[in-house]
Amino acid sequence: MSVLVATDLDRTMIYSQPAMGEAQFAALDTVCVEIYRDAPLSYMTTTAVQLLAHLADEVPVIPTTTRTPDQYERIALPGGPFRFAVASNGGRILVDGADDPVWRHQIERVVSASGAGLDEVLTELRTRIDDSWVKSLRIADDLFCYLVVEPAAQPHEFLPAWQDWCAAHGWTASQQGRKIYATPRSVTKSAAIAEVRRRLVDDGTIGTDAQLYAAGDGWLDADLLEIADHAIRPRHGELELLGWTTPGLTVTAETGALAGVEILEWLHARCSVRPASDPAHPSARAVGTS
């Protein structure tokens, strides 16, 4: 097998109703793929559900997310169960749904040697925020933290100044909608995917010449898109606001959940996936059951 796919989830594959927009949500045929606190939270279009299930039948697909393992497990992602997933922005590799302690220990060693600790970051961050625009400060996986903010009330000078402080202390700061993340610079999706790729090569699942295809919409996806042989991002999100690009990058024509469909169609075309209507293909039986 000569292809490996790594894809971000939120605002790349799955979308909340606000992320889609009221008009798009009303117009599209959607499937709820995440329930949180007894309410629907995330959706995919029915077309995207079929495309992702079909893709995962054909090639190794690695869900790659900043979500913690617990947050990731809330998603009923089409094509699962997945042999590998990357969570906590690369701080965790999940193998058949279980955390890989070897990778986590390696991450903890690297983080402790490469910059400020989480406690120091939290102490500094608390001096820069207040309740007039910050709804909550959350710690994720004892590894990084993020703010949930009211963007309209957010001071314009906060993010650039916070990014400067983080950069000087071995961390990175980025904003995706209402969330502002602070993550150790040494914890990346690209490093975790490189490790997953190594394991898949070692066990013969993919060849040494396997091409990496990647998709993502936020700054925390940029390193993954840069190392990919072929990359795509939606025409929305943090990278779109930044005007971010990299050689060979494809940008969708569509936005919102329709961009998710376009990304999956792009992956199908470039990964030479057989049509789902092919009777020999397992998804001819499975598609539409998620």
Rank of each mutant, 00 (worst) to 15 (best):
V102I: 13
T68R: 10
D99K: 12
E238F: 01
I232P: 02
T30A: 08
W162F: 14
V33K: 00
G97F: 09
R92G: 07
D164H: 13
T252D: 03
D278N: 14
T45D: 00
P151D: 12
T255I: 03
A85E: 04
Q24I: 08
Q154P: 01
V251T: 11
I93M: 09
L242Q: 11
A27V: 08
R83M: 05
V287G: 01
D57E: 15
I35E: 12
D202V: 13
H54G: 08
I232G: 03
Q176T: 15
A192F: 00
R104V: 10
P81K: 06
V121D: 06
C166L: 14
R270E: 02
Y181L: 13
G21V: 08
L264D: 10
W165T: 06
Y213E: 02
D217W: 05
R270F: 05
E124N: 13
G256Q: 03
P101S: 09
A27G: 13
L212T: 02
D8K: 07
E124H: 15
A53G: 15
V201K: 04
I129K: 10
L147Y: 10
P81M: 09
V49P: 00
P234C: 10
D221C: 02
S190E: 02
L94N: 02
H230C: 11
D70H: 13
A276C: 12
R274P: 01
A27R: 15
L137M: 13
C271W: 04
A257M: 07
A192S: 01
I35A: 00
E73D: 14
S16A: 12
L249W: 00
K135N: 14
H268R: 10
T30F: 07
A214N: 02
T45Q: 10
P160W: 08
I139G: 08
Y72Q: 08
S277N: 13
S114W: 04
L225N: 03
T252I: 02
A269M: 06
Q17C: 03
R109T: 12
T246S: 09
A194M: 07
A39K: 11
L125E: 11
D203H: 13
T30Q: 01
D278A: 10
V187E: 03
L147I: 14
G207K: 14
P69H: 09
F158P: 05
K179P: 11
R67M: 06
A210T: 04
V111A: 13
A215C: 15
V251Q: 09
R37L: 05
T245E: 03
S272P: 01
G207N: 11
D131V: 11
E195I: 07
Q176P: 05
V196G: 04
T12S: 07
L122F: 04
D278L: 14
P234M: 11
V187D: 01
L267Q: 04
P275T: 13
G115Y: 10
E120D: 15
Q17M: 09
T66N: 12
T172L: 11
T208C: 06
E238W: 00
A85C: 11
H281S: 03
T172S: 10
A191D: 11
Y43F: 15
G248M: 01
V3Y: 10
S112Y: 05
W162Y: 14
W103N: 04
G216S: 05
G288I: 07
R67W: 08
D131C: 10
P184E: 05
L143I: 14
T245F: 00
